[in-house]
Design a protein around this nucleic acid. Sequence first.
DNA 1: AAAGCTCCCAACCGCGTACTA
DNA 2: TTAGTACGCGGTTGGGAGCTT
Length: 242
Amino acid sequence: MVRSPSIDKNGIKRGAWSEDEDNKLRAFVERYGHPNWRQLPKYAGLMRCGKSCRLRWMNYLRPGLKKGNYSLEEEQLIIKLHEELGNRWSVIAAKLEGRSDNDVKNHWHAHLKKRVRSTNCVNNSSSMEQFTESSQTGGPSQLNEQSGSENDVVVDTSATLLQPTSFPELSSSDLYSTSNSLLNGITDWIEEESVEQLSIFSSLGLLPDSFSCTKSVDNFQTQHFDHFWTQPFDNFWTQPFF
DNA sequence: AAAGCTCCCAACCGCGTACTA
DNA sequence: TTAGTACGCGGTTGGGAGCTT
């Protein structure tokens, strides 16, 4: 997953960091700080460029950095801030305790971007607005009220799907994927079935409350996942250091 | 079993900005 | 004012791991 270590023509090492290098950098920065990244590797006994040292420290070694799964709240905040600020990853990361800009950026490209895109696609509207709005209030928005004619059959049950407390070992991304698959399955099924069957399905509490379905006489459309994220889820440079 | 593909994270690169002489 | 230097940011890439065929 990391680049193979190599040494360029200037004798600067590149690629993946070894444990020994990490230890040297960590020990040096914790003892002396980092007032001059360019000079640091020389005094820390590292064959790296200052830029590489800074990056390694900021994204991996810095104390208080969180690694691993993002919480629902963190993901909501990233999406909200990205909508407001664009790709200003350092500003966004600063709002998230223990996350680096690189980490936030990677998580966005790997998980959140396509999620936002698909949500926008499904809803064909300002879903992010609803997303962030409902995230703040903690409750579901009122999509059903936007549904049109009296011929519409509106379903919005109180059943829930894939609570994180039930699946603590799954990340929110995993839960999202699984729930999305299930909901797509339900959607496909509903598109093939009658309104009557849909009503039965609803009355039995078998639809999640993140799911709403509108069926008009001449126009069938499903709307789901708008509320998924609102569900309860859970001058000392005088001597070399080494 | 193995070849090909996709995902995703760590690291690199280039550019803009701040600072200093 | 300008040139040089260092830093920080955001875009991009490399490549291992896991998945699919």
